[in-house]
Design a protein around this nucleic acid. Structure first.
Lengths: 156, 156
DNA sequence: TATTGTTATACTCTATAACTATA
DNA sequence: TATAGTTATAGAGTATAACAATA
């Protein structure tokens, strides 16, 4: 390696303030970092962060259709199909026809699904805690509250 | 529409607390919302949020190579190629061979590029302000600070 | 041999359009 | 006609592998 190359190593570090002061950059990379931590924490339980979200929605209030579950998650119904296929293959959810409208599928958690949900939720919570661990005391709570306000607002 | 359908409309609203209390969901959807606002604000200037980020990196400290610029952005050098192709087609940047190492491209902003950067940065800032507008006074600043702390930490 | 820019390729996530069965 | 689930397809955004030029 020449001295040229050493100069490059020094100069090639990370992003400067022109990026790290922009909210869009911060949100994107905070999300990426937490997603990595969460994926690692969920891996022993055999599900992804997106699949955990699906299980959470199904457990919250039993949806009367796949489409309803998709709406609660903010994804398209066609995306929900593949997610449920994977969860059904893993034995975590089961589809059955709606009693009054046979076009619909009611989706339920299996016993294994409920157990996985419980363990995976705890693993995810621990990943969140580790992610926030370096923030001073009230800041983690404040971050969550601020994001909640921003996200749950009606569309502008 | 039957009363069945009306029931569905009521039940199909949004995500419940099982999702909106999870940090991963909040970060992802906050990022999505701001990205939408930013894209709309930048559209009159003919660039995307990612392209604005490239212009910001190029303007910050002139990179000695495309690869260096990519590292500052946290993307792959192969991704940078396509981004620069688009910006060069729009006449916002220019590539020229590095004086001492002809494998490299030095990438500069054109006069039009600098002008676009200035206007687009302001439009992006305004989008950020609108995004944060509904937060009480210190919360926007605190949000930015907390994210900055989380994102600029060395890898755990 | 190693590195830079480039191309080809593939993988993930997502949405749109069209099909089917039901309503 | 309209809706739910499904399939095929396509478009971002991203990365890996391999190549030519250069070091």
């Amino acid at each position: 390696m020449s001295s040229e190359a050493r100069d490059d190593q020094e100069a090639a570090e990370g992003p400067g303030p022109e990026l790290t002061n922009r909210l869009g950059y911060l949100l994107k990379h905070a999300q990426l970092r937490l997603a990595e931590l969460t994926a690692a924490a969920l891996e022993p339980h055999g599900i992804s962060g997106r699949e955990l979200a699906v299980l959470l929605v199904l457990a919250g209030r039993e949806p009367a259709s796949q489409q309803q579950a998709a709406q609660r998650l903010g994804i398209d119904r066609t995306t929900m199909v593949a997610l449920l296929d994977a969860l059904e293959d893993k034995g975590l959810v089961a589809r059955r026809p709606h009693a009054d409208d046979r076009r619909r599928n009611v989706v339920e958690l299996t016993a294994v699904g409920r157990d996985t949900l419980r363990r995976a939720t705890q693993a995810g919570d621990e990943a969140e805690d580790r992610f926030l661990a370096t923030l001073p005391q009230p800041a983690g709570r404040q971050l969550r509250d601020a994001l909640h306000t921003l996200v749950t607002q009606p569309y502008r």
